[in-house]
Write a protein that binds this DNA or RNA. Structure first.
Length: 336
DNA sequence: AATCCGGCCAACCGCTGTAGT
DNA sequence: TACTACAGCGGTTGGCCGGAT
């Protein structure tokens, strides 16, 4: 049964016995090194194959079965924004794997769009199509790419911080947690903060907000059991409710002050504080429906708080919610 | 009943980016 | 700085299954 490569490693479908071996090994030891895992687990497979089997099939949080209408819509809209970046799309559908989404797209959604007269690659109508659909997506694409840029910048920052303050993030390598399978940046406090902000905050955070939120998050996680990764921030918790530095009373105050100065210097030490406001200005005129009339718009007096000089007098009305969330909830009649 | 065909999906392959040395 | 090893990603393949003929 089964195929074998020239090194004697098994290929092809996994048997229930192999699954069981892999599961129980990961349960006991975690999945630190995929290369070393098969030998230790008694499997005649390459590490890559084990990793794939775990990520795409055995992981306990995987949702199997039919995609819901909402999920379909999310995939279509995110594909319009992100293209074939399946892992990025999967990040917005946490219980689905990139492979599953890719398969679903290739086998069904692509064909469905084609049938509707929409080019599945460009998301533009081949002939007469829905202009509303296309107009929505091109606006969204602009916003999303801008947002991704800003997020990437923050990730770089947080990575620096993360390395500098690494002693506050002691992940338990041996614990079997799903978050271990996430890309490294999803472990970083900064994105947690952005996520939480996007879901809960009614105002834009300033650099100070972000800095203090990072500190609170770090301090909180110092107290948690080490088996709980720091990325498990409760999405319903608004970490921006406490903005005043002097009232931050979490963890060791001395350490907080030290961490805060490190964070602030990181934000100050290159272009972030000048880039972000000008980049926001660039986009402020693009979408009048978001900058002027949106009923859900947010009054933004000073996007970068005290860090921005030029931008202080500009008042924008921006719906600065998480764009993919917006997309998921926005109607696109032509699809359903 | 046998064969064909298309849909579906798990798994593989090869490339790329990154961390470690 | 260059090199190596490895993880992760997206494209592709292969095989199973069910419906049509």
């Amino acid at each position: 049964m089964g195929r074998f490569d020239k090194e004697g490693l098994k290929k092809g479908p996994w048997t229930p016995e192999e699954d069981q071996k892999l599961l129980s090994f990961i349960d006991k030891h975690g999945c630190g090194s995929w290369r070393a895992l098969p030998a230790k687990a008694g499997l005649q497979r390459c590490g890559k194959s084990c990793r794939l089997r775990w990520i795409n099939y055995l992981r306990p949080d995987i949702k199997r079965g039919k995609f819901s209408l909402q999920e379909e819509r999310t995939i279509i809209q995110l594909h319009a924004l992100l293209g074939n970046r399946w892992s990025a799309i999967a990040a917005y559908l946490p219980s689905r794997t990139d492979n599953e989404i890719k398969n679903y797209w290739n086998s069904r959604l692509k064909k469905r769009l084609t049938k509707m007269g929409i080019d599945p690659m460009t998301h533009k109508p081949n002939g007469e199509g829905s202009s509303k659909y296309v107009a929505n997506l091109s606006h969204m694409a602009e916003w999303e790419s801008a947002r991704l840029e800003a997020e990437a910048r923050l990730v770089r920052k947080s990575k620096i911080l993360f390395n500098n303050n690494n002693n506050s993030h002691n992940y338990n390598i041996n614990s079997t947690t799903i978050s271990q399978q996430l890309p490294y940046y999803q472990h970083l406090p900064c994105l947690d903060i952005l996520k939480a902000w996007q879901m809960t905050s009614t105002k834009l955070p300033t650099i100070n907000d972000i800095s203090h939120a990072i500190l609170r998050n770090n301090s909180k996680n110092k107290k948690l059991d080490s088996s709980i990764p720091s990325s498990t921030l409760n999405s319903s918790e608004n970490i921006f409710t406490n903005n005043a530095p002097t009232t931050t009373k979490v963890g060791d105050d001395h350490q907080n002050l030290h961490d805060l100065s490190t964070i602030n210097s990181c934000f100050e030490d290159d272009h972030l504080q000048t880039e972000l406001p000008s980049f926001m200005q660039e986009f402020s005129g693009l979408f009048p429906e978001y900058t002027q009339n949106s009923t859900n718009g947010l009054q933004v007096d000073n996007i970068m708080g005290s860090c921005s000089g030029d931008f202080e007098d500009n008042k924008l009305l921006i719906n600065w919610n998480n764009l993919p969330n917006y997309l998921v909830n926005s109607p696109i009649d032509c699809i359903n």
